[in-house]
């Protein structure tokens, strides 16, 4: 048996019912064709599952009996989340876009979080644990280099999304979760760093290394990333 960190085993997921979400268009079609058609239609810039209009889609209010689970993300380019990790590995800022928290506001079922796209909705405690894990992994990866000295991990890729990490000179990490095809991660992280310097570090009421509760920063991030749909 593989040993797993015990902290990752306690996956308690909240069980919000999908009926609470009347605005959502549910996808009922079979996997392959529907996805292609929606991709073809969504060339025109910003798109989300909310404004897709197609006879392949089910009625707007009723959730389907079968969960629709795409193998890959439907959205070609999307930003799913932003984390700021302080130099001790604590998560001081975390926000979701494009997936659970913004437009689709988190459908979580009790068996498997079957988001139509995007990432799973996790509890804040789980995000804290993941950020701590990432911090540790980042430190280890710089020691495994086969050729000369190395930085820590910069991009971590899964099959359908990637994690881009910006390590600042002070040890703060900016982490962006995006779809695999997203090409703007690095520039966005730089801009987030700028916003952080302006709206957080220059704020006299902010305690360094503590969670960021700044409306100014929130506004800047919203202006920068918006709903997470990059065209």
């Amino acid at each position: 048996m593989e040993r797993q960190p015990s902290c990752l085993l306690s996956a308690k997921r909240s069980t919000r019912r999908p009926q609470d979400e009347p605005t959502v268009v549910w996808v009922r079609n079979k996997f392959g064709e529907g996805e292609k058609q929606r991709r073809a239609r969504s060339r025109s810039g910003t798109h989300s599952l909310l404004n897709v209009n197609s006879d392949h889609l089910g009625p707007a209010t009723s959730p389907p009996n079968r969960w629709f689970q795409p193998k890959f993300n439907i959205l070609a380019m999307a930003i799913f989340g932003l984390w700021v990790i302080n130099k001790a590995g604590g998560l001081v800022y975390q926000r979701n876009f494009a997936g659970p928290d913004s437009s689709l506001s988190g459908f979580v079922s009790d068996f498997n979080p079957p988001l139509i796209d995007g990432l799973a909705q996790l509890t804040s405690n789980e995000y804290l644990v993941l950020a701590g894990t990432l911090h540790g992994i980042h430190a280890i990866t710089s020691r495994l280099s086969p050729m000369g000295s190395s930085s820590g991990a910069q991009i971590i890729e899964g099959e359908a999304f990637k994690i881009t990490i910006l390590l600042t000179a002070t040890g703060t990490k900016f982490v962006l979760l995006t779809s695999l095809t997203d090409t703007s991660s690095d520039s966005i992280l730089q801009k987030v760093y700028e916003a952080y310097s302006d709206a957080v570090m220059k704020n006299p009421f902010h305690t360094p290394e503590m969670p960021i509760r700044s409306e100014g920063f929130d506004t800047r991030i919203t202006a920068l990333i918006g709903t997470g749909q990059t065209a």
């Binding site: 498997n112 993941l130 990432l134 992994i137 495994l144 910069q154 971590i156 899964g158 099959e159 999304f161």
Partner: peptide
Amino acid sequence: GVVLSLRNMIKKLSGRDEQFVNYRTSAYKL
């Protein structure tokens, strides 16, 4: 350890049975 942690992290974040594929640093790619 790195591979296993990242694999679990990717699974957790995606909420699906998604595999960890690779990561890149300035000096190498795993």
